[in-house]
């Protein structure tokens, strides 16, 4: 029985997603009607407000859409930079691996919100001192840089774990065919490591997706800040933040499910 429900759920994911959203909004509406006396009542989840929270103002990307854009750009950036860090850390040359280790350890020991503030306030100062010109980064750019710098440290550790998980026999088999170290690494080891890492990277993406809400402190109008803007205007905090919580949950939960699905697929192929 349980299996049958699961199967049905798997097959109709998008349908369920929309259905859930509609049901939740309906429930909130019902609560609203019961909880507030008519006179005080200001509609919080109007079509306009929801639209503002999900896609931002007309002609300007914001809200949940911007949250996704930030998360996707940052994860791609940190995937590339994190891979370079991991490969550097994997190197046996001390002059290459030490800076990578320092970077990774430093950023893993800092709170993300501090990194966001630091990039936002320090980049113009440091940049100005270095290049003697006024360098300013917009809030959005600062946020993207912060997330990329921060996440790279974590992605690097995921990549490193992936590289370490490749059995010694794979190196030996590649060497035995006469491959160079470079060929062994880029044709045999790294592709396998990436396949094994997909689930961990997706869960890192989910965590990044939630963490983008911190960009609100420097004024990026992503989903969370969009919600606070509406709240500051009409003070229907309960509905607004319930809506925010539910949307975050649905997005994160679906992504986690996708990650789990990918993991099963990958396991199947790599398990020899």
């Amino acid at each position: 029985m349980n299996e049958a429900i699961k199967l049905y759920f798997e097959k109709n994911k998008i349908l369920f997603f929309i259905l859930n959203l509609v049901m939740i909004i309906a429930l909130l509406k019902l609560f609203q009607m019961l909880a507030y006396p008519k006179a005080d009542f200001k509609e919080a989840l109007t079509l306009n407000n929801i639209k503002f929270m999900l896609v931002g103002m007309d002609g300007e990307l914001g809200g949940l859409a911007l949250t996704f854009v930030i998360a996707i750009i940052s994860i791609i950036g940190s995937f590339i930079f994190g891979s370079i860090l991991a490969i550097a850390r994997f190197s046996k040359n001390r002059f290459i691996n030490t800076p990578a280790i320092l970077y990774i350890e430093l950023f893993r020991a800092l709170p993300l919100i501090m990194v966001i503030f630091w990039v936002y306030f320090a980049v113009p100062i440091v940049g100005g001192a270095l290049f003697h010109t006024k360098i300013s980064a917009s809030a959005l750019t600062s946020a993207l840089i912060s997330f990329t710098l921060f996440e790279s440290a974590y992605i690097a550790e995921i990549v490193r774990a992936g590289l370490k998980s490749i059995p010694q026999g794979q190196f030996e088999a590649a060497k035995t065919l006469g491959m160079s170290g470079y060929q062994t690494f880029f044709l045999i080891i790294l592709p396998q490591a990436y396949r094994r890492m997909i689930p961990a990277i997706v869960s890192q993406f989910v965590s990044l997706f939630k963490d983008t809400s911190l960009a609100y402190v420097i004024g990026v109008i992503e989903f969370f800040r969009a919600a606070t803007i509406i709240n500051n205007r009409i003070y229907q905090s309960f509905e607004i933040f319930s809506f925010v919580a539910i949307v975050y949950f649905i997005c994160s939960f679906s992504l986690s499910k996708i990650a789990a699905m990918m993991e099963r697929k990958v396991q199947k192929q790599l398990h020899t």
Binding site: G169, Q170, K175, T176, L177, G178, M179, Q183, Q192, T272
Partner: peptide, 30 residues
């Protein structure tokens, strides 16, 4: 190593490559 091929106890095939690719990767890339 190209002149002395080796077969291992645990096969050590490349799991992310098909059988055909496992066999051709050496000749093609090396």
């Amino acid at each position: 190593r190209q002149e002395a091929g080796m077969v291992f106890q645990h096969f050590n095939l490349f799991p992310h490559k098909t059988i055909l690719e496992n066999i051709t990767i050496g000749p093609v890339k090396v």
